[in-house]
Structures are given as C-alpha cells and as structure tokens.
C-alpha cells in the first residue's frame, strides 16, 4: 500500500517537473509585456501609493513616542525610553480614572450606536425599495442624505435651538402643554439618548446608499420567480431582498465592530458639556484634552496605540466569526 502511494506520489510529481520552468517563464514575459503596455497606468498607481506611504505608513514610526519620554526638541530616536521597559505611559493610562471612564464610555456609546443605529439604514433601504413612485422615492432619498453633509458643530447649533431647557423649541412646546422642561442635553442620562438619536438622524440616509446599491444588483428573475410562487411583498422582502444583501450587511457589521473603540472626535466634542462629561468623555476627546491641550503627548500616543490595537483585534474576531458563519469576510 505504502509503496503504491509512494509511486502514485512520484507519478504525480513527475509531470510537474518539466512544467516548472514553463510556469516561471510565462509570467516573466507577461510581466514585461504588462509593464510595457500599461506603464502609464503603473505610474499613475504611484500617486496613491506615495500618498499612503507619506500619510499612513511613515507616521506609524512616531508610534514610538508611546514608549518614550516625549521632548519637543529631540527627534523620536533621540528621546529617552520611558520607565518600566517603555511601558510607563500604558501603566499610567490604566491607572488614570479619566481614561477608564473614557474607555467605558467609548465602548458603551459605540455599542449603542450599533444596536440602535445599524438596523435603521437597512430598514430604510428596504422600505425605500418598495416605493414605486420614482419622484417621491428620489425626494425622500435626497432629504435623508442631507444631514450627512452638516458638520457636528452645526448640528449642535440646531440641537440647541430645539433642546435647551428654556429657549428650546421642543421644551417650549412641552411647557406650553403644561409639562416640565426635559434636559435633553444637560442631563447625563438623557444626553446619551440625544447623542445616539442625533447620530442616527445624521447618518441613516447616507448609510442606506450602500444597501440600495446592493438591492439594485439583485436579479429581477428572483422576484419574478417569487411572484410565480405566490409570494407577497413582505415575503419577497424577507425571502429575496434580505438574503441577497446579507453579505453587504455582514461586511458593514464587521467594519462597525472593528471600530468599537474608535470614535470620531467632532461628534462627542461638539455635543458634550460640563454637566454630562461622566457619560460623554470618550477616548478621542480625552486624547485631545490631555494630549494636545495638556501636552502629555506620550500618554495620549499610548492611548491611541492601545485603541488601534484593540480595534484590529475586534476586526479580526468579527471577521473570523463571519467566516465561521459561512459568510465572506473582508480580510
């Protein structure tokens, strides 16, 4: 048996050998041909590569600041190493109560964002897809996109007009109806709701674009077949549209989970105020206040590095999980 197998293996290997040089030969010549024929395109490719290198890769070198005692006048290589084998600032960060709060708030707010905010664009896209009046559909779509183009500073301005306890439109209405004003923005617990709500309002229209695109790629034959089988609108939505856009949903979910510790800066910074800091301070605002305003560059670089690493880990876990579930991953 063993002999037979060996023979079989040898037999298999044999025909490979003469092919090998051939295999190497083919790409070489075609590489030359490709380069020659399309060299302009490859030169064009240089531009984004240089961009990536200068703005994404070379700054990574400065991650070293997290392990060194920062000095404004020395280059990174000259700075002395921090105590505790360079981990002084990581230890400091985790001993820092504010950082722990910021970490907790970041995770909490991002999870809420995913829980409350993730399904909405999908539902919106599904509903929009069912509209048959083209003009109405386009109008709704455009209006829903619009908030995406407003900066958070402007949105905060709008929120003030609506939500301040004495002058806010909504609170004035509540008071006219005999109620007590609600502290939407200056009560720590209500603030979370306002923050999430404003986030959804700002982004659901824009986020639905990708789902609409996925939906438009579904073959009409599937719907026709479903009709023939006697499926109603809701059943078509459930059994055709949703399964067809499932890969898109999964990819976006992975990306969202990969950003669980990430936080954009302008949204929490614009919306927060002194009365809600215990729920509103997130890592990005913590880094801004302590690093850029407080000059603790090493500490905040350490925090930033930690944040990135956790994000990568989350991304990998989510990706692995989705593959386990039989979906395509992104990495």
């Amino acid at each position: 048996m063993a002999d037979l197998e060996e023979q079989a293996l040898q037999a298999e290997e044999k025909p490979k050998k003469p092919e090998k040089p051939k295999k190497e030969f083919v790409p070489k010549s075609s590489a030359g041909i490709y380069l020659k024929r399309y060299w302009q395109l490859y030169v064009l490719l240089l531009i984004p590569l240089v961009y990536l290198f200068i703005f994404k890769y070379s700054p990574m070198y400065y991650v070293l600041i997290a392990f060194k005692k920062y000095s404004i006048v020395q280059s990174v290589s000259e700075m002395p190493w921090a105590k505790n084998h360079g981990f002084e600032y990581f230890i400091k960060a985790f001993q820092n109560k504010d950082f722990r709060y910021a970490l907790r708030n970041t995770v909490f707010l991002n999870l809420l964002d995913i829980l409350a905010g993730f399904p909405i664009p999908i539902i919106f896209a599904l509903l929009l897809n069912e509209l048959r009046l083209k003009f109405f559909k386009k109008t709704v779509q455009t209006i829903a996109y619009m908030p995406h183009f407003l900066s958070w500073v402007i949105i905060y301005g709008l929120a003030l007009q609506l939500f301040t306890p004495t002058d806010g439109l909504i609170n004035m209405l509540i008071q006219k109806l005999g109620g007590e004003p609600i502290h939407f923005l200056d009560n720590a617990n209500n603030w979370v709701g306002t923050y999430i709500g404003l986030g959804i309002w700002q982004s659901f229209g824009w986020n639905s674009i990708i789902y609409l695109a996925a939906i438009s790629g579904i073959s009409p034959e599937l719907y026709e077949a479903a009709s023939v089988d006697g499926a109603g609108r809701f059943q078509k939505m459930w059994h055709v549209t949703l399964p067809c856009i499932r890969p898109t949903i999964v990819v976006l979910l992975i990306l969202a989970l990969g950003n669980i510790l990430g936080s954009n800066f302008d949204r929490p910074f614009a919306l927060q105020n002194n009365l809600v800091l215990k729920n509103a301070e997130v890592i990005s605002t913590f880094v801004y206040k302590n690093g850029i305003k407080g000059l603790q560059f090493s500490l905040t670089t350490a925090v930033g590095l930690f944040q990135s690493i956790v994000n990568v880990i989350f991304l990998c876990i989510a990706n692995w999980f989705s593959r386990k579930m039989g979906e395509r991953g992104i990495v």
Binding site: V26, P27, S30, A31, Y34, L35, Y42, L45, L46, L49, V50, F53, I54, S58
Partner: peptide, 22 residues
Amino acid sequence: MKKRILSMLLAGIMVVSMAGCE
C-alpha cells in the same frame, strides 16, 4: 499571475519611495 506581478511591483515601489523619503 497578474496578482503576483502587481504585488512585486507594489513592493518595489514601496522600497523605492521609502528610500526616497529617507
């Protein structure tokens, strides 16, 4: 095949641009 050429090319460019930057 194309992929391999492309990746070799990318790596090459990376090295060259790195040297340039340094």
